[in-house]
């Protein structure tokens, strides 16, 4: 299935999600509001996207962008679901009930970005020690233990 067929398939099945769909970098992209993320993800799973390959985030300053990379083994096509959460209240519904693979990915995003996932069964740090302070992949993270590279190197 190519991306045009995917677009037709999506628009026939979920007309309300159709305007959110675009194509970037050879993948289908679904840009949704954070409140509608879980229902959109459930629709994507019902559409046939049975694999969750990756959950990650980007710090854009005022808000964080969450990126979920899905793949359908049957249709052989990829889909990226993106949403933005505000920096003041970085919280979004967990998708661990849809794809169990999301468990550790969401823990990693929580560990490094401080985004909480509502409904996650075991939301605690995964890469850093449990007593770590702060979330290092935030742009405003400051750690006095980090040695900055001098200009001449």
């Amino acid at each position: 299935m190519n991306l045009n067929e995917l677009r037709e398939h999506l628009c026939a099945t979920y007309p309300d999600l159709c305007p959110l769909f675009s194509v970037e970098f050879g993948d289908g992209v679904m840009q949704v509001a954070s409140s509608g993320l879980h229902s959109a993800a459930a629709d994507m799973k019902a559409l046939g996207f049975d694999m969750l390959g990756m959950v990650t985030a980007v710090d854009f300053g005022e808000d964080f962008e969450l990126i979920y990379r899905l793949r359908s083994r049957e249709m052989r096509v990829g889909m990226i679901v993106r949403t933005r959460v505000p920096r003041g209240n970085p919280s979004v519904a967990s998708v661990t009930d849809l794809w169990p693979a999301a468990n550790w990915h969401e823990r990693e995003v929580y560990d490094l970005f401080g985004i909480t996932f509502e409904g996650h069964p075991d939301l605690r740090r995964i890469l850093l020690p449990d007593d770590w302070v702060g979330h290092p992949l935030r742009k405003d993270y400051e750690d006095p233990g980090v040695i900055r590279r001098p200009d001449y190197l």
Binding site: L127, P136, G145, V146, I147
Partner: peptide
């Protein structure tokens, strides 16, 4: 990982 790294023992 000596410079600009928060997670590595030096």
């Amino acid at each position: 990982f000596y410079y600009d790294t928060y997670s590595v023992v030096r």
